[in-house]
Structure formats: C-alpha cells, structure tokens
C-alpha cells in the first residue's frame, strides 16, 4: 500500500443471532472506529445484520492456492469419515 492510501478492511456480518458472521465485502477506513461505521453504513442498509466484525485486510493470512492439491485433496480418499461409508440395516432405523 502506498503512503496516504486509506487502508482496506474486510467486513463480516452476522445476519441474525444463531448464525455465524459471514464475509460480505470491504471498506476503506483510517482506523477501526471508522471501519465499523463505514461497514454499518455500506453493508446494513437493508436489514442485513445484527452484528459486524471488521478486520484489516492486511491481517488476513490465506492459504496458498498453489498448495491447494496437497492441502485439500488428500482428504478426498478418507471416505470412512462420512456416515454413508457404514452399512446399517434399514430395520434398525435412523442412526
């Protein structure tokens, strides 16, 4: 980021209590107070939420897309982690 550019923040909104905060977009703000207000003014104009998180975009650590295969593909073969892997007779009912 160049000097005198206003930092970017990621905005997460909880649509209603009982649900998790979900990423919904970004705002520019000089500090966290401004970021929260901007998020409120930009992303909750139609009753979208009851709670807001803002996080400096620069603070987010992301996995490397180039490591996608080694990160996420090994799990595909571990089908015994899923309930459908196991056989239970119909008569036993839902389990």
């Amino acid at each position: 980021m160049a000097k005198n550019e206003i930092p970017l923040w990621e905005v997460f909104i909880r649509p209603r209590n009982g649900l998790a905060h979900k990423h919904c977009g970004s705002v520019h703000a000089a500090d966290e107070v401004m970021a929260l207000q901007a998020a409120r003014d930009v992303y909750t104009r139609r009753g979208e939420g009851v709670s807001i998180w803002v996080v400096p975009s620069a603070a987010i650590v992301a996995s490397d897309p180039l490591q996608k295969e080694e990160n996420f593909e090994p799990t595909a073969s571990k089908i015994y982690r899923h309930p459908t892997f196991y056989t239970v007779p119909d008569e036993v009912g839902h389990m």
Binding site: I6, V27, H28, A29, M34, Q37, A38, D41, V42, R45
Partner: peptide, 11 residues
C-alpha cells in the same frame, strides 16, 4: 470526501 461517506451522509 470519500466513497464511504457518500453512503453515510445519505443514510
């Protein structure tokens, strides 16, 4: 002065 404020003031 900035886009965020273009949304805040109309609110």
């Amino acid at each position: 002065p900035m886009l965020e404020e273009d949304l805040a003031m109309p609110n």
